[in-house]
Design a protein around this nucleic acid. Structure first.
Lengths: 341, 341
DNA sequence: CTGAAAGCGCTAACAT
DNA sequence: ATGTTAGCGCTTTCAG
């Protein structure tokens, strides 16, 4: 393994010069810089992260914390965000240390090892996590950025889906298809993202002059899995059998709902239109293909890494909020309302 | 952040003594050791990994390479293995750097950054990967362990599912249920794991004195996704309509097959028994619940980390093969053969 | 524009 | 049984 010394000797300069070249310091002449860079390539030299870290008191690592059940989830939602982060980290020369915490994490649990050992320069928290981990992490006073979760204490940098717009876009789309009796189903309604989608739904309905009855929505499912969608659809239909369109807070629930409809001979989209949110259920063989609101997960990962790098460079004062725009994806689970009577 | 100096001062010893205490060196007296350890706790001291790495020429990191499509897969198979590895890494004080490579990785692609930068002490490769990445990694001469993939060059440490036993166990189970006309469906048959499951199937059939007709199996699907199971079931039934049980090479294909059977009014398990492999499709709402061969994924991750630590400690000569035992999981997609005639 | 040198925190060989 | 010290590879200040 070549060291900075080897490069210096080979290029006939001091190690200080090599260091300056690497850091693109302006006061190095172009010829020297070129010569040194050539030697670096030739010797396949890569600075030792240990040595660098020792002197700079930085680790070059970013911690990525995720709830275990989110990580294991069948939809590649957070995994895609992670990949985006990991990809972007390459540009900033960071390594990303992924760790999961149990969903029942409490104050008594030990924080992730990389925090205790101060082996990260900053921390990314993805998705909803228990308050206790947030409090613990805050205590260590490291740059902290959230992605796809809005912590209760509203004073952190965050990268969020524009859920309100998303909810509005989805609902407006159904309205444009002439639907008036539009239902909404959700689980985990205390989750800020889900709540915002609900808000978007209500805002779009109101804007269109459509009344929202209490019976138009089911939001008491405690999770957003398929079976919750299945159950919510059942409950919704029991409350209001004149529903012609359903906006589900995510794809999993949308698919669950469609399953229920299918089993009860309600044809999609002929009898009922269904739209989801997230665009994660890649199950292409699913029939009908699901209209949904696409969330650019990979890009969120990139964005959060950028924010993190910013905070590390420019101090923790740089609190920013980034809203990631969404796209409407029209597939076959939605159709224009057919007027029968 | 406390350093070794702070500890030494506070405990009235030299930094060398502190270091020796940390490494549990025998020639330190118990009282000293206890005193120092108390100070370490009190100051919440954690050795700097950079400083350690610099002097020991080790990074304390293990690289974990996975194909991107495997990582994003809906079944939490490789993610569970990763979690096991990450968990076990804590005991060995390693950090795991996860990175993905595209499935079409070729010799022209750059190896993962942590290899180029020598930022890992060893490399774990999970799942089937292109030969080119293996060749590239081999060139760097780092301790290398495979998990759930048997590289073509048979001279590496590996942690594998006992696929042959698994195939035999699944098949014998169907035989015990009085089935004789047992079909096998698979995709990606060139994959060693899949191939071994097929071997297990054939061995069990032969041992039971049951003939295997060419028409008893469909192994030409090129992937093991649900739709391949669906298609394979169709093809199998066309070849042999007297099949009463199907052993699918994995759960995804099993579920695809069941979908096909259901759509064609073949009741599971009354008309046909189906057993899968892996125990990953957590979709509990799936009806009927799937009998399968459970693979302890988390434990595989633990095992591979143990092997890795072994290789690093005892030199790369320690080439080992670890076979992870499987369990039969009996659920509702299998039943004893009903004789009608 | 470039070089010399101090020092980051730790390990390990050597000294006591 | 414990202390002293060199040195790992790098960044950065200060000199030139």
């Amino acid at each position: 393994m070549a060291t900075i010394k080897d490069v210096a000797k080979e290029a006939n300069v001091s190690i200080a010069t090599v260091s300056l070249v690497i850091h693109k310091h302006k006061r190095i002449s172009l010829p020297t810089s070129q010569r040194v860079n050539k030697v670096i390539k030739k010797l396949n030299y890569h600075p030792s992260r240990s040595a660098r870290g020792l002197v700079s008191q930085k680790t070059g690592n970013i911690g990525f914390i995720l709830r275990e059940d989110h990580f294991l989830r069948s939809e590649a939602f957070y995994t895609r965000i992670f990949l985006g982060t990991e990809f972007e980290a390459r540009d900033y020369e960071y390594y990303v240390l992924l760790t999961t915490i149990p969903s029942g994490y409490s104050d008594k649990d030990r924080p992730p090892r990389f925090i205790l050992e101060k082996n990260v320069d900053g921390i990314i928290i993805a998705g909803k996590v228990p308050d206790s981990i947030i409090r613990q992490v805050e205590r260590y006073n490291l740059p902290l950025v959230f992605v796809d979760y809005y912590p209760p204490s509203n004073d952190h940098s965050v990268v969020l889906i524009d859920n309100i717009s998303g909810g509005m876009v989805a609902t407006r789309f159904l309205i444009k298809l002439k639907h008036k009796n539009i239902g909404f189903i959700a689980g985990d309604i205390s989750h800020p993202s889900i709540n915002d989608r609900f808000r978007g739904y209500r805002m779009a309905m109101e804007n269109a002059g459509l009344e929202i009855f209490k019976k138009s929505y089911i939001i008491d499912e405690n999770d957003t899995a398929r079976e919750n969608g299945y159950n919510a659809a059942r409950k919704l239909l029991k409350q209001r059998n004149d529903i012609t369109a359903v906006f589900a807070c995510n794809d999993a629930m949308a698919i669950g709902a469609i399953q229920y409809f299918k089993e009860n001979s309600i044809s999609i989209p002929d009898n009922v239109s269904v739209i989801g949110f997230d665009d994660v259920e890649a199950d292409i063989s699913f029939d009908p293909t699901l209209s949904t609101v696409r969330v650019p997960k990979y890009e969120m990962g990139i964005e959060v890494m950028k924010l993190m790098s910013d905070m590390i460079k420019n101090g923790k004062g740089t609190k920013k909020k980034v809203l990631i725009p969404i796209d409407l994806i029209e597939r076959n689970s939605t159709a224009e309302l057919k007027i029968y009577k």
